[in-house]
Design a protein around this nucleic acid. Structure first.
Lengths: 107, 107
DNA sequence: GGAATAGCACCCTAATAAGAGTGTTTAATG
DNA sequence: CATTAAACACTCTTATTAGGGTGCTATTCC
């Protein structure tokens, strides 16, 4: 039950994120070493993240964004409550558990 | 040179993200098992992510967002080029390497 | 109300990533 | 244009995580 390969779009999204981190860092005139130090992680990890390696942890990403002052963006990454009020109302009736209704093979 | 504790705001941001993933999943009427299966990861991993444990990897997050159809949000997480054209132009002059100009203790 | 099962909370082990170290390349800048 | 060090590319080892299992709780839905 293990990993099929990382979908290409997902890989590209991660790579893009890495480039943007690098850009944001340089805009702030921080070296990789400096960012790593302030974030409390190793330079290697910063480098791997900027390089777009998918192995990085969300914690490290959050630490970096925190230092960059862009934590809000992570917090609202999948946020929907802000724009769609009707959606929010709908959510009040959302099931806590989702029952398998699929008759065929979609589990 | 290891980890000082994860800053509280960062932890909260990750927790929020986890809740939003859970919400998005239930909106789509997917069980944790189903989402895990489609994403090619284990149920435990999905659960830990939704629970807000910071240990999850960016790859897993990307896989999940891909299944949820929200990969764009990750891709543009730190994207700045879209709104600020002037900023983009400024970036053309950005240094590839950032030199330590800090005279004191700010490394 | 009762049966079925989604979700949770563990534990354990194999797989993986983070950290540290070393050497090299190359951009910034005095 | 020479110096300095930022960034890159590795390797190795240890720490951490993902996966898989089992049992339990409690929500759906008939």
């Amino acid at each position: 039950m293990n990993h099929y390969p990382l979908p290409e779009p997902a890989a590209r999204a991660i790579a893009k994120l890495g480039r943007d981190i690098s850009l944001a860092r340089r805009r702030r005139r921080l070296s990789q070493a400096s960012l790593a130090d302030r974030s409390g992680i190793s330079v290697n990890t910063v480098r791997r993240l900027e390089k777009g390696e998918p192995s990085g942890s969300i914690e490290h990403l959050a630490r970096i964004l925190h230092v960059l002052g862009e934590l809000k963006r992570l917090e609202t990454l999948l946020d929907t409550g802000t724009d769609e009020i009707g959606l929010l109302m709908m959510d009040e009736g959302l099931p806590q558990r989702v029952r398998a209704r699929q008759s065929k093979g979609a589990l």
